[in-house]
Design a protein around this nucleic acid. Structure first.
Lengths: 138, 138
DNA sequence: ATAAAAATAAGAATCATTCCTGCCTGTCGT
DNA sequence: ACGACAGGCAGGAATGATTCTTATTTTTAT
């Protein structure tokens, strides 16, 4: 084979992101890979994440509490974000097919390439942790 | 009447956000209100935006190029974000009804309160500004 | 093995946002 | 009108995530 194109650290960073469903922050990835490579630098994490994004190997989900969240699962799916604890959860339900992109592109004469659907609310854990009056009553 | 509850500057900030469809940043609002109130402080803009958000008078759309974007139109609607110039555009199409929140809440035993649907791509302006090979061919 | 190219560590720099402090304004009771 | 008070504000410092810079180390090709 011609070349690896992946340094050890880069590979470890990608695998760390792929190995979890927590939709990690850069800091999380840094802490996750650090034990294996104690001289890892946070800059390296950011730099490689940027590359992975460009190459389409990972997706950026959005900013939660000031920190960008990433997802190693690039299959189309939607997300739920807990407004209380900031956890991000995958939702398997398919609500919109990719065909919409083409339809919108034509209707507005522009180029629609992707979409993201994010639900907000309070996750199961937060809901039961501190019983709140009649939140669910509504 | 008891009290205004709205200082002049606060009112001006809210009106600035409501008066436009550009989905402004805090800085944009600051620049927009400054001419009328030259001693306006950026901190005041941020403080009032935070209050408006809490009170539900405006919505935060998300972070584009590192800056949060706000929307004075709180009626449910979706958005398109140009990956090239960062402009945000309203889409009137209704793809998901609010009923989904209840369905998801029950299915996952959590509290789903809202959702946001954002399309990404290249806006009309950017598309024609610099003719790009066969982007639309796909 | 060696030289060129790519990747990295470390820390400085950037930049949006938040926090802090003292000042100012309008309000209310007297 | 007067004094006391609460809320709102300017200005600047502080914060914190992300990006940039530079010298060094690792990888790759020869």
């Amino acid at each position: 084979m011609k070349r690896e194109n992946f340094s050890r650290k880069r590979q470890a960073i990608l695998e760390a992101i792929r190995s979890t469903t927590v939709h990690p922050t850069a800091e999380w990835v840094y802490q996750a890979v650090k034990p294996q490579y104690p001289d890892l630098s946070l800059g390296t994490v950011y730099r490689n994440i940027a590359r992975f994004k460009e190459e389409g190997l990972i997706h950026a989900i959005g900013v939660v509490n000031g920190q960008e969240r990433y997802d190693g699962d690039i299959r189309p799916h939607n997300h739920f974000v807990c407004s209380q604890c900031g956890s991000v959860m995958d939702l398997s339900e398919k609500y919109l097919s990719q065909e919409i992109h083409q339809l919108l592109s034509e209707k507005y004469d522009m180029l629609v390439l992707s979409h993201e659907l994010i639900f907000h609310g309070v996750c199961q854990k937060c809901l039961y942790q501190k019983p709140v009056s009649d939140q669910r009553g509504a």
